[in-house]
């Protein structure tokens, strides 16, 4: 159970209309190493929640357990929209995504055989078949999603969407756009700006702010502290597999445990 300052985190109550993720008794071990053991945690009660912690704290594993791309040893994860509670921990990842819980990847995932444009269409294609000729058959999607896709491409200045993405940064942005095209209720972001230059990071955050203003919730794992302190409404601090502190950014950044285990004295 975490310690908190209570500002904005009391009881994990969801804001009206905002769905939350409830985690209970969740554990995961690799060999004899327990990497996640979270007794009770609510994510998504606030519009933007940061999840920070030292390397190896279990942040990525926790995100993967929520999406069920890694299977938990014990415990449950549910999506609570105020009216009903759905057990995500019993669903396949694509079903979880269809309920509005979507995640970007820390290590860039790419569709090497697809052009930038086709790799984005794949996100909204009915048949999730990444062979180019299959996507070609779903050209009607362009009518429905073309404008939205083009608007994202314009934000990040992709000048040749008929070509292939080469750099890690480009692939990372496409991963984010694919998630946004699914119109998520809760977007989990695993280090979305690692490896991006400052100006592109600012573009990413500006885009996310607009989505949050329209009702989307964001849970973000990130080591870029300007992003965490400036963007999050509440920050969860994770260490050794559990969230041990939560509170608003000012509370977390000044906490001696966070300074000692994560920030170092250079960031105080």
């Amino acid at each position: 159970m975490s310690e908190g300052n209570g500002q904005g985190t009391e009881g994990g109550a969801a804001a009206p209309g905002r769905a939350v993720i409830r985690i209970r008794g969740l554990t995961k071990s690799f060999g004899d190493q327990t990497v996640v053991h979270v007794d009770d945690l609510v994510l998504g009660a606030q519009p933007v929640e940061g999840l920070i912690g030292p390397n190896g704290a279990g942040k990525t594993t926790l995100m993967r357990l929520i999406m069920r791309s890694t299977r938990a040893d014990t415990g449950s994860v549910t999506l609570d929209d105020g009216a009903s509670e759905v057990a995500l921990s019993k669903l396949a990842p694509h079903r979880i995504a269809s309920l509005g819980v979507v995640k970007t990847n820390q290590v860039t995932q790419d569709f090497a055989g697809l052009t930038i444009w086709d790799s984005l269409l794949l996100a909204v294609a009915q048949r999730r078949d990444e062979r180019p000729h299959r996507i070609y058959r779903e050209r009607h999607l362009v009518e429905r999603y073309g404008e939205e896709i083009q608007s994202y491409l314009d934000v990040f200045e992709f000048s040749e969407p008929g070509g292939f993405a080469h750099s890690t940064g480009e692939k990372k942005l496409l991963d984010l756009i694919r998630c946004l095209l699914l119109n998520p209720k809760i977007l989990l972001l695993d280090e979305p700006t690692a490896g991006l230059p400052e100006d592109v990071t600012a573009q990413v955050i500006e885009l996310l702010r607009a989505k949050v203003a329209a009702g989307m919730s964001v849970i973000i794992v990130e080591h870029d502290l300007d992003v965490i302190w400036g963007f999050s409404d509440v920050v969860h601090f994770m260490a050794e597999g559990d969230v041990i502190l939560e509170g608003d950014p000012d509370y977390i950044r000044a906490h001696s445990t966070v300074v000692e285990k994560y920030l170092g004295s250079g960031h105080v």
Binding site: F30, V35, T60, Q106
Partner: peptide, 21 residues
């Protein structure tokens, strides 16, 4: 120093940051 306690762990199970180390 984070690697010292992970000497005998399979590298495929490490976090992204640990993998970089």
């Amino acid at each position: 120093p984070a690697l010292a306690g992970l000497r005998n762990q399979r590298a495929g199970t490490l976090s992204g940051g640990e993998t970089k180390m």
